[in-house]
């Protein structure tokens, strides 16, 4: 299936930040059935990330603050090469920077390893000067997106933060700058405190919430973006089963990304893509695109 300029093997994509640090890990997720894989977000210089605890399972999902650990684009090209050599699913390189020049430097630096697509991380909620620090400003998102689109010859997706008043204004800025798809959502800003010691649990004190708790937030963002935009929307946030993915697709997603759910089941991609097929057959549809945004017609 072709979505936003790339040929997915199925509508389930490995989300950024999950098993995406090495080429071998990405290839493993492809073997486990991912229709495409997104790398860990890669930046201009090596970064060790925040101190631990960096990810903790809560009652309703997961809270994390990894802090964008990455070996830099020069260190990561080899891993993309390894992944591409071991799998035929498309590889989407997630990148971040503090401004348009840094984003473009990283994108250009990775081009030699031939990623099939870029996903711009303008949405990490807990890295000072990066991610959501730039992704909450439509003008900056426009400038960054336009700069990367101009510099590369593959599709550029932009992943948005839900931690804004109006996500559609950011989505429009990315679309008008030439984004091929909008990915929504990144994690929801959150915090957990250990009541016995009084310490915030994450090493960074606060971070981003993922997992089942954020799914309704993601569904609403996808629903609004589908209404506001012409480019495809990729739905991500709290998907753990076929029903979750179908709900996201009905809201307007052309494909879905899956992250935290890998914790409970590394075979989750096969289960969800098969479940989507079963649903399509049951209700007499042929393709995922037949049901993308269908709930918008139910008035």
């Amino acid at each position: 299936m072709k979505v936003a300029g790339i040929e997915l093997k199925n509508p389930t994509i490995l989300a950024s930040g999950i098993m995406g640090t090495t080429g071998a890990a990405l290839a493993r997720m492809s073997r486990n059935g991912a229709g495409a894989v997104v790398t860990k977000s890669i930046g201009p210089v090596p970064k060790k990330g925040h101190n631990n605890p960096s990810m903790v399972e809560l009652e309703c999902g997961y809270i994390n603050a990894m802090g964008l650990p990455n070996p830099s684009y020069s260190g990561f090209c080899e891993e993309i090469g390894i992944a591409k050599g071991k799998m035929d699913a498309p590889l989407i390189a997630s990148i971040f920077g503090g401004n348009a020049a840094e984003f473009t430097e990283v994108a250009k630096g990775l081009l030699s390893s031939k990623p099939d697509c870029f996903e711009l991380n303008v949405s990490c909620p807990h890295a000072e000067g990066y991610g959501a620090s730039v992704g909450t400003d439509p003008d900056l998102v426009h400038e960054i997106t336009a700069s990367v689109v101009d510099a590369v010859d593959v599709p550029v997706w932009v992943k948005l933060t839900p931690n804004v008043t109006d996500i559609t204004s950011i989505g429009r800025a990315a679309e008008s700058a030439g984004a091929s798809a909008i990915v929504a959502i990144n994690t929801v800003r959150g915090m957990a405190i250990d009541i016995h010691s009084g310490y915030p649990i994450l090493g960074n004190r606060f971070g981003g919430l993922s997992g089942p708790a954020v799914k309704p937030v993601a569904v609403k963002c996808v629903y609004d973006l589908y209404e506001a935009l012409d480019v495809p929307v990729i739905g991500v946030g709290g998907i753990t089963c076929p029903e979750d993915a179908i709900e996201m697709i009905l809201a307007g997603a052309s494909a879905v990304e899956i992250g935290s759910a890998v914790h409970d089941d590394t075979q989750i991609f096969v289960k969800i893509s098969k479940g989507i097929d079963t649903y399509l057959q049951k209700y007499g549809y042929s393709y995922t695109e037949d049901i993308t945004g269908l709930s918008h017609e139910m008035i």
């Binding site: 640090t21 990810m55 650990p69 590394t266």
Partner: peptide, 15 residues
């Protein structure tokens, strides 16, 4: 990093 098999920081080559 995460300690629970999600982030991939400790994943080994080649598998």
């Amino acid at each position: 990093k995460c300690g629970i098999g999600v982030c991939g920081a400790c994943s080994m080559d080649p598998d």
